[in-house]
């Protein structure tokens, strides 16, 4: 028995590393539905996670209480001003929408199913430094489904990645697993916008290195594919470069959405 002693550390290390790799593989391979092991682990951990959530909620509550009343009043005043200008914009938008409808009717243009937008409060943010997701108070009971697009008043936010009964997780554009078909408004050159470059930077990869793109160009969703409708604002080009081995052109895009300060979003219910 004593002879086994020096190997105890090695055995423990191998066991724990193997357990981590095993768990990683079973959770990494099943994107759609959680595997048996994952469900078992999450169920076992649930009481502790609930305790943890309660602690977090309490702490958030105390932090909110510390906010000064004056600050809230100022914010209220600002929001009222913004609401006034938005109402004006909404009226203009309705006007343009009606005009658009008339022109479409004239041209007998086939309408794409635009879906219905539902407002949702942002109730959580994933604190991980590796991933970018938020949680919204809108779930399956409101008709939300996986892959429904999410927008804010400024532009595209991302898509629904997980739906519970009364809440859903949104995969933000800046997440490394996010990808959106996009185009340059000026030149109509197509590409794919991906995250994983930082909390306020996106990378757009073009299908050709001859793509016509320059600093300041506006990027919108292309509408190709079934995930996102076309024309949703993504951001503005900050710099253009050709990465090695020089087969494609890429650019960095500064998103119009301020992902750090999202409070309300719109979910497109298909």
């Amino acid at each position: 028995m004593r002879r086994l002693f020096p190997y105890k550390k090695v055995v423990l290390t191998i066991l724990l590393v193997a357990a981590s790799v095993f768990l990683m593989n079973i959770t990494g391979s099943s994107n759609d539905s959680p595997s048996f092991w994952e469900s078992l682990l999450r169920t076992c951990m649930e009481p502790f996670v609930n305790l943890f959530s309660t602690l977090m909620d309490r702490a958030s509550g105390y932090a909110a209480l510390l906010e000064s009343k004056q600050e809230l009043m100022d914010e209220n005043k600002d929001l009222r001003k913004k609401l006034g200008s938005l109402e004006l914009l909404l009226a203009q938008l309705r006007d343009v929408q009606q005009e658009n409808q008339r022109l479409r009717d004239l041209l007998e243009f086939k309408e794409q199913s635009a879906g219905e937008y539902k407002g949702a409060d942002v109730i959580g943010r994933n604190p991980s430094k590796w991933f970018s997701t938020i949680t919204v108070r809108l779930g399956a009971q409101d008709g939300v489904q996986i892959d429904d697009p999410v927008i804010s008043n400024s532009g595209l936010v991302g898509r629904i990645m997980k739906v519970d009964e009364d809440q859903a997780d949104v995969l933000l554009l800046t997440d490394p697993e996010s990808g959106v078909g996009a185009l340059v408004v000026r030149s109509r050159d197509y590409g794919v916008v991906v995250g994983g470059s930082g909390p306020d930077v996106l990378t757009m990869t073009f299908f050709s290195k001859d793509a016509d793109v320059k600093q300041g160009d506006v990027i919108v969703t292309s509408g190709i594919g079934s995930l996102y409708p076309g024309g949703l604002l993504i951001g503005e080009v900050t710099d253009v470069y050709i990465p090695q081995p020089g087969l494609v052109k890429e650019c960095h895009v500064r998103p119009v959405t301020d992902f750090d300060h999202l409070e309300e979003v719109l979910v497109m219910i298909r």
Partner: peptide, 25 residues
């Protein structure tokens, strides 16, 4: 050290991670 690291990693993965095991590793 090893068991605490593993357990805290797993807890972190279950709470905020996307893949269980990455933080544990």
């Amino acid at each position: 050290g090893l068991i605490t690291g593993f357990l805290l990693g797993i807890i972190k993965d279950v709470i905020v991670g996307r893949f269980i095991g990455v933080s544990a590793l």
